[in-house]
Design a protein around this nucleic acid. Structure first.
Lengths: 211, 211
DNA sequence: TAGATTGTTAATCGATTAACAATC
DNA sequence: TAGATTGTTAATCGATTAACAATC
């Protein structure tokens, strides 16, 4: 059977649905209609129903959606029903910030190792995870089952590092370097371009100030 | 005269154009055609020309685009032709990482102050900027001309803090807390939801592994 | 049952791509 | 001038919204 490809726009919205449902769950809300959720999220009810029906019929006519059920279904869709082993390359401020962010751990993203070139960081540990040197990276990746590598090294080092990681067998990269990585299509790259984000902000500020 | 609204999709792509043009500039490339740029960026040449022509005719038939000129024009469009004063609320790992990221400074985003509730951080400084206590925030904002507030406090504190910042007259927020801020529409909010980004990655990993 | 709300089809709207005349 | 490539219009494609029959 032919399965329709899910559009990127839909995937981008899924984490946001998940976030709102997590909040509702915390507030012990049992059921919610697409209309009520749409008002909270500032989207159309139609869009919510269309989006969800890409994955299945999670609601019930006349009732709406059971919050707990829908939450757990979206978790499954997002692949949050398993543990991911993550390594962080670059133990600068940003790398350390990620390593310290316990929330990721709660969601199933386990920081397995942190690496840096700076010998002065050798032996230091973050949340009990010792910073390792880059020489140890390859054997570490080979001996551990690493699902994701977060790249928090300077822009100039990122492309080569990414290629090396791919050569070591890494299949998913969370890229924080302000550059695009050109890698084989079977490698999944998710970019966090903070400088792009900041420029979008300055664009909107200067647009607003023009008016 | 009626000026057509620029679509969000176009604005999202502008920083990426800017990034590629910066790279070309650094490599001393003088001119580039939409076709060549499209190949580097993995988009269609048509899209590049359409996008740019929202803002003006920056190219020349038979020649293409002058890299330096186009770069500087996009900088202007993005509002990068001025200085922005930025404060960071929350001097945890992420706040410190932002404060330390000198690249922003280079682009005209000046870190004016860093604030935290933790008295143990009092007096500590990052890149010469002393961490201040939250009690000092209001007077600091009033005495300095602050353009942007970066929120790097925990989720639970973010909505109230955002409201307070707005009350103090802040008009643009760079939000790193994993929650949406519901603020008056005249306030510009740019979100960096790292957990959303990580979930998109896990979605794609689990999709790939299914196949 | 009557009312509410989904799932889904159809209509609309917007964004991307193709095509080509204009022009450097 | 001839060739290249833009700027721009038209065609296509995709995403969002509206509408409503199905059904809980």
């Amino acid at each position: 059977m032919y399965k329709k490809e899910i559009s990127k726009a839909v995937i981008n919205r899924l984490p946001r649905y998940y976030r709102y449902l997590s909040d509702l769950l915390e507030k012990d809300v049992v059921r919610i209609s697409s209309k009520e959720l749409s008002e909270r999220m500032n989207v159309t009810a139609s869009q919510i129903r269309q989006d969800l029906n890409n994955f299945g019929g999670f609601g019930q006519q006349g009732y709406g959606y059971n919050v707990e059920y829908l939450h757990s279904e979206i978790a499954k869709i997002l692949g949050l029903d398993r543990i991911y082993n993550l390594i962080i390359i670059g133990a600068g401020n940003l790398g350390q910030a990620l390593a310290n962010y316990a929330d990721f751990e709660r969601r199933g993203f386990h920081v397995s190792g942190i690496f840096d070139v700076n010998p002065r960081l050798k032996g230091l540990s973050i949340r009990g995870i010792e910073i390792m040197m880059m020489e140890e990276l390859e054997s570490f990746v080979k001996e551990n089952s690493i699902d994701i590598a977060a790249i928090t090294v300077p822009k100039s080092k990122a492309p080569q590092l990414a290629q090396e990681l791919v050569n070591m067998g890494i299949k998913a990269i969370w890229n924080f370097a302000p550059t695009d990585l050109h890698l084989p299509k079977e490698v999944t790259v998710e970019n966090v371009h903070l400088s792009d984000s900041l420029m979008k902000l300055s664009y909107r500020i200067s647009e607003r100030d023009k008016a």
